[in-house]
């Protein structure tokens, strides 16, 4: 049940917070640049060539990972699920590792990484079609073990790499927003993201119905297994897109859905947009804080976990206490 006026108020305030964070993200950095000077020839390059791509990547990664995590938590019926639980992100990492080993240029690494994850997605989908299961156990276990397989292959790649190559690859794997993605690629990714999100949103009622057991969903007129498979593909595409652009930024996909559910309930028709905005806001803010505190490039993936885990534990303990 969606009280429209309340929903519009929530979206508006989140949207406002989002824009505020966006502008702050552009202004804050090694030095503060007020929005008035955004087009000043002196600061123009810093704003639009350094900070703007980072903010865009934060929006793509934060938003995509949050929505992907939300979907995985429902279709796997597991509150601990996050976008990286199934092997697709591992495959993306493997693709990236191979790209680094083969000395490919940067945009190509992203492309190869995305391709390998699509391949993995195809394999998992094919397997799940053959072994139709009424529970999500088969899907979950297939994904978890594929994940192990890929991460061990990535470790192998690391051991074969030349000294400084290994550092590069490790840094990429740790996740961050500083990778030199060419601007056209960013805009294409944003386009893909919005296409996927609008498709997901149009089907969000079916996602809501997947909260029930498979047979109940079927009895309500939705092909449970087909819908589960569809959402698995959509969520994996979101994850693959993000990992190929930014490496593994963990925790956002786990934390944001829980946070949104805690604040606004569990109806995807309502909170999918909330998830996207909160994820984007969170990642822009975290990146903003990290790059202002240190002049170094820090692995954002590690920082999100460092900051997110205590907060999440606090939330969990608060809710469980009598």
């Amino acid at each position: 049940m969606i009280r429209t006026s309340k929903w519009i108020a929530e979206i508006s305030s989140l949207g406002f917070l989002f824009l505020l964070t966006l502008f702050t993200g552009l202004s804050i950095g090694v030095e503060w640049i007020s929005p008035v000077h955004f087009w000043d020839p002196l600061f123009k390059n810093i704003i639009w060539d350094i900070r703007w791509p980072r903010v865009l990547l934060a929006i793509i990664a934060g938003g995509a990972l949050s929505v992907s995590g939300y979907i995985f938590q429902i279709i796997l019926k597991n509150p601990l699920a996050d976008p990286f639980i199934l092997g697709v992100s591992g495959a993306a990492c493997l693709g990236g590792a191979l790209g680094f080993l083969l000395h490919l240029g940067y945009p190509l690494i992203t492309f190869v990484s995305f391709l390998t994850s699509l391949l993995c997605l195809g394999v998992i989908d094919f397997v799940s079609r053959k072994h139709v299961s009424t529970t999500s156990h088969v899907l979950l276990l297939t994904g978890v073990f594929l994940s192990f397989l890929f991460s061990s292959l990535v470790t192998l790649c690391l051991s074969f790499s030349e000294p400084f190559e290994g550092t590069s690859l490790l840094f990429w794997l740790m996740g961050g927003l500083s990778f030199p993605i060419p601007t056209p690629m960013l805009w294409i990714s944003l386009g893909i993201l919005f296409f996927l999100l609008s498709f997901i949103y149009r089907k969000s009622y079916h996602l809501h119905l997947l909260n029930l057991s498979a047979i109940e969903t079927q009895a309500l007129g939705i092909d449970a297994l087909k819908t589960q498979r569809l959402f698995f593909i959509l969520a994996s595409l979101l994850c693959a897109l993000t990992v190929s652009l930014t490496g593994m930024i963990g925790f956002v996909g786990l934390l944001v859905p829980h946070l949104c559910r805690f604040l606004w309930g569990n109806d995807p028709r309502r909170i999918l947009i909330h998830c996207f905005l909160v994820g984007a806001i969170l990642l822009i803010s975290m990146d903003m804080v990290v790059r202002t505190l240190f002049p170094y490039e820090m692995p954002l993936g590690a920082m999100t976990a460092l900051l997110g885990a205590p907060f999440f534990l606090f939330l969990l303990w608060k809710r469980s206490s009598p």
Binding site: V30, I50, F171, S178, E297
Partner: peptide, 10 residues
């Protein structure tokens, strides 16, 4: 050191 681009520019 792994400096951010902004820091390197300075």
């Amino acid at each position: 050191p792994k400096l951010q681009k902004e820091a390197a520019l300075q």
